[in-house]
Design a binder for these strands. Structure first.
Lengths: 221, 221
DNA sequence: CCAAAAGTGTTACGCTTACACCCATGA
DNA sequence: TCATGGGTGTAAGCGTAACACTTTTGG
């Protein structure tokens, strides 16, 4: 479960950074290490249903804008004890939301993960890679962005999720040409330091769609 | 399991076409329909091990040049009876090989599938889509091509797998620039109808590699 | 009037497709 | 020498990144 949120800590400038939701294990094995939310699959539920059920214990599911199956981790020794197979999912939470969290649960910057349990570190890496790729050729950004937003906000979100700077100008034209975002017609008020008020946009669809099979958002340089 | 092989049948010109290996069910449920090879996962085997074990019953595994996990199908009603979850794999067999097959097993053109069992039709579609995508940005072609080949042969293979015409000239330059293929230095003899002898190439690596994250092989037009 | 932020116009570049033209061989 | 297939050179198209310049607001 990923969300772009302001960087924590006193000495930081609150710049938006991609975070992942982790949960600290209270019991052995691997007590104290951080895990992805999850659990066992019930006999009569879809995997998706199961994931939603597991996540409901951690956050308010109304915040979940996208949920999608990713890879399966099936090494027989990936966890001690009985053999278990983990099917990972990509969940996305839009940016301004601040779901209440249980005390054992916390958002962590993906670029600075705490010690992770089992194979959950590689799982996060893999999911992040998929997110980066999908930002290029789908409209998946809708699940990270607010309902309406200024382009500079969207740039910050893409930049955080992709892990490299993004030019707002070019992002606008790319996403408009693909009909991924449209202007609402309204404009935001300008901030206290002045500046021209920004036009507001929204995503054209609130459902996952492949918009351009061969598109790319490249890092600068 | 995919392979590019000459089109079957009397009235065809033997043009290479992408085929998938299917197996005809002898027993109910769905007797007579065609299935992907597979079976249950043992307690102490990796999924990959399990797949290799299942496939060994159908073909000589030395022919298998690539094997990779794809999506999981987990709808509780996808098969009757006990709830089962299917994890699909992409297997590739190089082109000139002609593995011996059991009598209930046959190669079928992916563009003309027989009635398939359960959800195996969508599974084949999905695997084909992944193959097409990966031909663009990885060296996965090595697993469909012979050890050495003329460029026109490789063009036929790519064309069959992608499902659209491919220009041999451009394929050469694209794959050479990415260091996916290299010249062997030798040349093939020209066919009985004359023509300039073709230079022979081989794939630089015989292992799966992402060669260019943002590359594309587009259909003409 | 100045600083700050947003938006526009334009150029440059990389990668891919398209296609006309030249090369080598067998009959 | 002609037909056939292989190979080279080159141009065109498209999409994206880069960046200078203009517009609109607040102090």
């Amino acid at each position: 479960m990923f969300q772009v949120r302001p960087q924590q800590g006193p000495a930081t400038d609150g710049k938006p950074v991609l975070h992942v939701l982790l949960w600290q294990r209270a019991l052995d094995p691997q007590r104290g290490r951080w895990s992805l939310p999850g659990g066992r699959l019930g006999d009569d539920e879809t995997m998706t249903d199961s994931v939603r059920r597991q996540l409901a214990e951690k956050v308010d599911l109304r915040e979940l804008a996208h949920l999608e199956q990713l890879a399966v981790f099936s090494d027989p020794d990936r966890v001690p004890g009985d053999r278990t197979i983990a099917s990972t999912f990509l969940g996305l939470v839009p940016s301004p939301a601040t779901p209440e969290l249980p005390s054992d649960t916390r958002w962590h910057p993906v670029s600075d993960l705490p010690p992770t349990a089992f194979d959950h570190g590689p799982m996060v890496d893999h999911a992040h890679n998929r997110l980066v790729a999908k930002l290029s050729y789908t409209n998946i950004g809708f699940a990270l962005a607010p309902g309406e937003f200024a382009l500079s906000t969207l740039r910050d979100i893409y930049s955080a999720a992709l892990g490299h700077p993004v030019d707002a100008t070019n992002l606008q034209r790319v996403l408009e040409r693909r009909h991924v975002i449209t202007r609402t017609g309204t404009t935001a008020r300008s901030g206290r330091s002045g500046g021209r008020p920004a036009a507001l946009y929204r995503f054209a669809d609130a459902r996952y769609r492949v918009t351009d099979e061969f598109a790319a958002l490249r890092p600068p340089g």
